[in-house]
Amino acid sequence: MSQSVVAKRYAVALFEIGKGKSNLDQLEEELLVVRSVFLNDESLQEFLGNPRLSSEQKKELIRNVFKDVSKETRNTLLLLVDKRRSDMIADLVDEFVKMKNEARGIAEADVYSVRELTEEETKQIQDVFANKMMINTLRINNIVDPSVLGGIKIRIGNQIYDGTVKTQLKRLEQNLVTANK
C-alpha cells in the first residue's frame, strides 16, 4: 500500500475526531507546526528512524517535543511512531489540510509569475478562479519564477491554467506549423 494512501487514512481519522470536537482549526495549526519541525530538523528524523532505539524512547521524545499540542495531535504522532510510520507525517498533514479546505470550500493555488503580485492582482485572481471553480475562497501562494516571461501560470490541485507568454508562443508556433501542412 502506498504511503500516501496510508497517510490519508490517518488524516481522515484525525479529521473526523477534529470535526466531532469542533477543533479543526487548532489541529491544522498544530499539524503545520509539526510538519515544519519534521521537515527542518533532520536530527529528529534520524532519531525516530534509528532501529537501535526502542519505541518507548522515541515516544518519550515526541511527548517532550510536542508537549504543548492537543491530545489528538500528540496521540496521532505517538501512533505513527508505534507503527514505524513517522516518515509520513508531512503527507498526513497535507492530506488533513486538503480535507479541511474541501470541507470549508477553500482551495490552495500556486501562482507562478515573473514578479511578486500586487494585492489587487491577487484579489482579482482569487475572485475569478474561486468563481470558476465554484468554491468559497482561494488561497494564493505566489511563486516568483524568472522563467515566466510574462503572464501567469496557476496550479490548483491537479489542474493547471497556463496563461504565460511562453505557452502562448508555443501554441502560436504549433498553429503556424499545422496550418502550413
Rank of each mutant, 00 (worst) to 15 (best):
T73Q: 07
I135G: 01
N40Y: 09
Q3K: 14
I160C: 05
I89P: 01
N101Y: 02
K67D: 13
L117G: 06
D127G: 12
Q57E: 12
K83Y: 02
Y10V: 01
E42D: 13
G49T: 05
Q159R: 14
S113F: 02
R9V: 05
V5S: 13
D87P: 08
R63I: 11
F38A: 01
R115C: 12
A13G: 06
I89K: 04
N40L: 12
D68T: 15
K83I: 07
M134D: 14
F66T: 10
G105V: 00
R9S: 06
T122L: 12
I106M: 00
L138R: 00
R35D: 10
L14N: 06
I17M: 00
G20R: 09
Y10C: 01
R139N: 13
Q174W: 09
E173R: 14
N50T: 05
K8Y: 10
Q26I: 12
R115P: 11
K71L: 09
K59F: 05
I17A: 03
D91Q: 09
I140W: 03
Q174T: 15
L14I: 07
R84N: 14
V111I: 01
Q168K: 14
F47R: 08
L61I: 10
I154V: 06
N142C: 06
N101I: 01
K181M: 14
I152D: 05
G157P: 00
Q45W: 10
L39A: 15
A130W: 00
A13M: 02
V177D: 12
L31T: 06
T178G: 14
E16H: 08
Q168G: 10
K181Y: 14
M88A: 07
K19M: 08
G150N: 03
S43L: 13
K58P: 01
P146T: 13
Q45V: 15
E173G: 11
I143H: 05
V69T: 09
V5G: 11
K67E: 14
R104T: 10
N75I: 02
K59S: 08
R52K: 15
N175Q: 15
I143L: 04
N175I: 15
P51H: 05
K67V: 12
L172D: 08
M99G: 03
R85H: 04
K58A: 08
G151E: 05
R9Y: 00
K123T: 07
R52V: 14
L117D: 04
Q159A: 08
V6Q: 03
K21A: 11
V111L: 02
R9D: 03
Q168N: 10
I156A: 02
T118L: 04
R35E: 08
P51F: 02
S86K: 07
P146L: 10
K98V: 07
E72G: 10
G163R: 08
I152V: 06
M99R: 04
E116C: 07
R63A: 12
E56K: 13
I140D: 01
T76A: 06
N75Q: 06
F129P: 02
G151M: 06
S36A: 11
E29D: 10
F96N: 00
L149K: 09
E60L: 12
V114T: 15
I140M: 05
K71N: 08
E95W: 04
N64S: 13
G150H: 05
L27G: 04
V6C: 02
N158D: 14
E28H: 11
D82M: 11
M99Q: 02
K181D: 15
T137I: 11
L61Q: 11
I140E: 05
V81W: 00
I17S: 01
